[in-house]
Amino acid sequence: MPLISLQDVTKSFPPGRRGGDPVRAIDNVSLDIEAGEIYGIIGYSGAGKSTLVRLINALEKATSGTIIVDGHQVTNVPDRQLRKLRLDIGMIFQQFNLFNAKTVWNNVAYPLRVAGKSREEIQARVTELLDFVGLADKASNYPEQLSGGQKQRVGIARALATSPKILLADEATSALDPETTHEVLRLLRRVNEELGITIVVITHEMDVIQTLATKVAVMDGGRIVEQGDVFDVFSNPRQASSQRFVSTVVRGIPAPDELAALRERHAGRIVTFSFRDGDSSQASVFLELAAAGVEFELIYGGINDIRGRAFGHLTLALTGPGASIDAALASLAARTTVKELS
């Protein structure tokens, strides 16, 4: 049974003005997240992903549909029960949302006080957590004295305080510079691998999905338009919005304007070969082209690596006798994806 399961979930907000239509932030979404996964949800701002993640810990209440987290219903349950459930779900935020009037120590201790832990338990747990995130020396500092990356690490320590099974990360790295982003992503990876915590990552940055997630769902207009293994979605995105996201990190097939520019600089026929691991190797493709007497030049593309699996698109300019090129392409098409660009 999945750890988090959403069935036909819809969330509408009241209309912005009198007489308007209600705003459908989440439109009939079904989603299963297994224990131990790092599940990425990507979409542009306004796609509904922040609302979606808040349905999981019931900070927002679903209008219809069923949400089950760790075997417990989240929809239509009294507040008291929800508060208990939230102890099992940590959350971190884009703007960190630390308690500014409290020290780092008291920020991390807060959820434990809410959970009614004893003084000794709190002492031990906060020490352990600050060690884990590498901020033991900042215990008595206030949030305003910390850098962005340090703030987010406090946020992570606070979210993990009550030893939750699930961590929700709402654009957790979007306010950070690239280097700090990677530091936080590494920490999140450790949270997943060392502590076995299931992570749901909301982001608009494909880079975050690429380095962190195992599964991904692409959201557009309140719907999930595509979901699956990160490798599958990256190497073969089916929907237009998925393709746009993938193209931000994967140099794939050239866009029409890029193609026009390539044509000006390169003679011959322009063909894109797509490789996924398991397909025939690049070397055999190049060998076969050479054997057929076709000259080729690599003009666009790249090979990507996702968690040890490679895929990519290479665009070649081919010159030589037309018949030889046709024969070679026909033969290669049986073994790998070939697309002639016209």
Binding site: N57, L59, D79, R83, K84, L85, R86, L87, I89, G90, M91, F93, Q95, N97, L98, F99, N100, A101, K102, Y110, P111, V114, A115, R158, A159, A161, T162, L168
Partner: peptide, 25 residues
Amino acid sequence: PGVIEAARSVGAGRLRIILTILIPE
């Protein structure tokens, strides 16, 4: 508002949020 939301996300009740987060902040 995000700070209040963070307190809600760790399971704090309304009265506790008012007394231990809202007023100190």
